[in-house]
Amino acid sequence: MINVNGLYHAYEKGGPFAVKNAAFKVEKGEIFGFLGPSGAGKSTTQGILTGLLPLQKGEVTVAGCDMKKPKREIFNKIGVSFEQSNVYGKLTARENLNFYSKLFDVNTVDAGTLLKLVGLDHVADKKAGEFSKGMKHRLTFVRSMLNKPELWFLDEPTTGLDPAIASQIKDIIKEENNKGTTVFLTTHNMFVADELCDRVAFIIDGEIKLIDSPRNLKLKYGEKMVSVEHNEDGKLVKEQLSLIIKEDQDRLKTIISRGNIEIMHTKEATLEEIFIKVTGRGLK
């Protein structure tokens, strides 16, 4: 569905690269995620893939179309949701969707159905300008579903939403993917990447550090960790210790021998811990 090779992008001529030598493939039917902290170059990459930013250097094919000279028709097959919601504030939610539907040459989903899907049916005829941030975000999100896209771009689909709504959005993404939609998503949230993605790319400073499935990553990089809360000189101390690293093992032995442990359990390494290990930096 997506083929990228040797992709570079700089916002200013001669300036720093926001994306450096990126290469990846997204297969039909998978959910592919870009995981990285803010400023890593995720949105920039999505911008190039969706034709919003010019392709400066590298090869990019999206849904069979060379993005050097994209054909407008491919947008009948593509849906794009944005990190920053962008709807007409002076139009109602329904008007926003109805106007957008008319821009497609293919059959579109009814606006009412979509609004209901994300719980906006009760405000369908309210001006979007009066919506809260989360509501605007949901409207932007469902707008990208109007043309039943084969390939769906989602830039930070759950950021800024309260947990209940975020989980609703995640369910919708999974469901559409089960129906056959290929998804490219970006996130700085390891849980989203872990829960949704078939494969993730770790990206930082414009460079892709690795690409693999969350499961493989945990097998490969994940070491068993122990989380301990213990009392030390009257203070509660919380520590994460590896069962593999020698110093951590010794430390754990010391803590156990003191016998002041309040809580202790083993856990899988999270994607974030793996991310830190691979890139040397966190996701924040």
Binding site: R72, F75, N86, V87, L103, F104
Partner: peptide
């Protein structure tokens, strides 16, 4: 500013 131009630009319109 409203960003709507981007939404328009990813629809099959010229």
């Amino acid at each position: 500013d409203e960003g709507v131009i981007k939404a328009y630009a990813v629809a099959p319109v010229k």
